[in-house]
C-alpha cells in the first residue's frame, strides 16, 4: 500500500529500534490509521506482510487497543473524557451538549463525515478538567459553551 514518505521513513527507522520486527506493530498501526482514517482490510494485510504476522494476529492486536479502529470515522474525532475528575467537573454536561449539537451518540459519526464522537476514559488532563481531545489535540477546562466553540472552529477548518 502507499503511505506517505514520512510514514515510510518512520517505519523503516523504527524497525531498527527493536530486536523483533513485530515490536513496531502498535505505533505503526496508529500511524497507518492516521493516514487512512481507519484500518482497512488492505492495511491489515499490508502490515501483516511487512511484519511477517498473520492477519489474525494483527486483528487481535487492533481489537485490543481502544484508539485503533477498523471502521471509518469522521474527519475530526471528538473524544470527551468521562472519567472521575472530568465527571466531577461537569463532563456529563459537556458530553450531553455536544451529542445534542452533533446529533450523534457515542461512537457515532455525523452525516457529513465531519465529526465522530466518543466518550473516552481518562486522557491525562484531570487537573484541567473537563477535557477532550479532537484527534490528537487537547482542549481543557471545558464548558458546554466553549466546547461547542471549539467544534465550530474545527468545522470551519474542516470545510475550507
Amino acid at each position: 500500500m502507499r503511505f506517505s514518505d514520512s510514514f515510510e521513513s518512520r517505519f523503516t527507522s523504527m524497525l531498527g529500534h527493536y530486536p523483533t520486527k513485530r515490536s513496531v506493530l502498535v505505533p505503526t498501526l496508529l500511524y497507518m490509521q492516521d493516514e487512512l482514517g481507519y484500518l482497512t482490510d488492505e492495511a491489515i494485510r499490508d502490515i501483516a506482510q511487512r511484519l511477517e504476522l498473520t492477519e489474525l494476529e494483527v486483528r487481535n492486536v487492533i481489537s485490543y487497543y481502544s484508539m485503533l479502529t477498523t471502521r471509518p470515522r469522521g474527519k475530526y474525532n471528538v473524544q470527551v473524557c468521562r472519567n472521575i475528575s472530568c465527571m466531577l467537573c461537569g463532563a456529563d454536561d459537556v458530553i450531553a451538549h455536544l451529542k445534542k449539537r452533533l446529533g450523534i451518540a457515542h461512537k457515532g459519526t455525523t452525516a457529513d463525515g465531519m465529526f465522530s464522537f466518543e466518550e473516552v476514559e481518562c486522557i491525562g488532563a484531570c487537573s484541567w478538567a473537563p477535557a477532550m481531545q479532537v484527534n490528537y489535540d487537547f482542549h481543557e477546562k471545558l464548558t458546554p459553551e466553549n466546547a461547542e466553540k471549539v467544534l465550530d472552529e474545527y468545522r470551519r477548518k474542516g470545510s475550507q
Partner: peptide, 25 residues
C-alpha cells in the same frame, strides 16, 4: 528509543507494557 501506545490502561502494568512494546495485546 521512543515507543507509542494506542489506548489501553492495562498496558501501564509493567508486564503488559512489555507485551505491548513487543507488538502484542
Amino acid at each position: 528509543y521512543w515507543h507509542g501506545g494506542a489506548g489501553a490502561y492495562e498496558v501501564g502494568e509493567e508486564s503488559a507494557l512489555m507485551e505491548s512494546l513487543e507488538g502484542k495485546r
